[in-house]
Amino acid sequence: MVLVTAAAGGHGSVGPQLVHELVAGGHQVRAMVRKEDARCAALRSAGAEVVVGDFLSLASMRNVLSGIESAFFCYPLTAGLVQATTIFCAAAKDAGVVRVVNASLMLAGPDHPSPICTEHWLSERILDWADLGVVHLRGGFFYENVLRFAAAGIAKDNRLYFPFADGEVRAAWVSGRDMAAAARGALFGEFKPGTTFNVTDVEPLSIKEVALAIGKNVQRPVAYEAVKFPDFVARIDAQLGDNSYLRRHIAVLAAAMGSGRVIGKASDAVYQLSGRQPAGIAQFATDYREVFSPSE
């Protein structure tokens, strides 16, 4: 039995895509969600057992992890990761879990200006110490962030509005589809505990190139247009809510994207872990073509 946390969504929508990959491969899957909603029906239809769990409750996580042999751990980009990791490890040890695949960040590191990146580094260390056969997947910048924060501008104005200065800085990106494929490989491959992969597309892309690639797929000219950071935050304020961690993280990324240097480095981890090349930006744009297209 394999546990997939953040199964209804989560960062990059990796969870639901991983559930479908695992079920299609004949695995028994328990899908952990934070609440019952319409997305749970799709998980059950796929063949997964759906359970409601609370990362910050030891009793809840003991119930979620009961009978589990391997697990995909993915915590949302918000406060509480260190506590959630500690609780998860305690419950996983009790359950006899022997493999954990941890969804981390490419920029994870000590003393990072983004608290989210620092806490992901600390979370990695806790999982290492817990001796759960962990494999860390440090994902690049998710293409799904464009979907989450800029799809409306693409559909309405043919503009990808982001606060990334002149848009020339290249970054290592990844799609949720490719991260899920890598996670499946990490769950069942033979790896030394603590092994870390940077999971990315085949080459770094600038936000200008991301916009052009989406435009090519939807067969309309889509262009990147820089916006000031306060204006960008105002556009997405409802999505950010009171999540001060994510607000700070986005501010750090915006500053980095104006630095003039490449952010991250491309790797062949998707191929190493899944046996196929990344589906990449073209497949991402195809998957969400309707979202990027003007509504009637």
Rank of each mutant, 00 (worst) to 15 (best):
W129A: 14
A266N: 01
R138P: 02
A108F: 03
A255I: 08
R184T: 10
L212H: 14
D268L: 03
R44A: 10
R148E: 06
G15C: 06
K208H: 05
D128R: 15
D157F: 04
A171I: 08
F149K: 01
A211K: 01
V146P: 01
D37K: 11
C117M: 15
I281A: 00
T196A: 15
V4T: 14
P115Q: 10
R220K: 12
C74Y: 00
L205C: 12
G167W: 00
S293L: 09
S274L: 00
D166L: 03
E124Q: 12
G194V: 15
R39G: 04
A79R: 15
F162D: 00
V4F: 07
P278T: 09
A256F: 11
V2C: 03
M1Y: 08
E225V: 02
V33I: 14
A95H: 03
K35Q: 15
V262F: 01
L240F: 05
R99M: 07
F141W: 07
S206I: 10
L273G: 01
E296G: 11
T196K: 14
T78S: 12
I116Q: 08
T85Y: 05
T196S: 11
L56W: 06
E296D: 10
L18Y: 13
F191I: 13
P193N: 14
N217S: 14
L246F: 10
A223G: 12
V146S: 02
N217V: 14
A103L: 11
N63P: 02
L18N: 09
Q239I: 09
T5N: 02
L81I: 08
V29S: 04
N217M: 13
D268H: 02
L246P: 01
A103K: 10
D166N: 07
H112C: 13
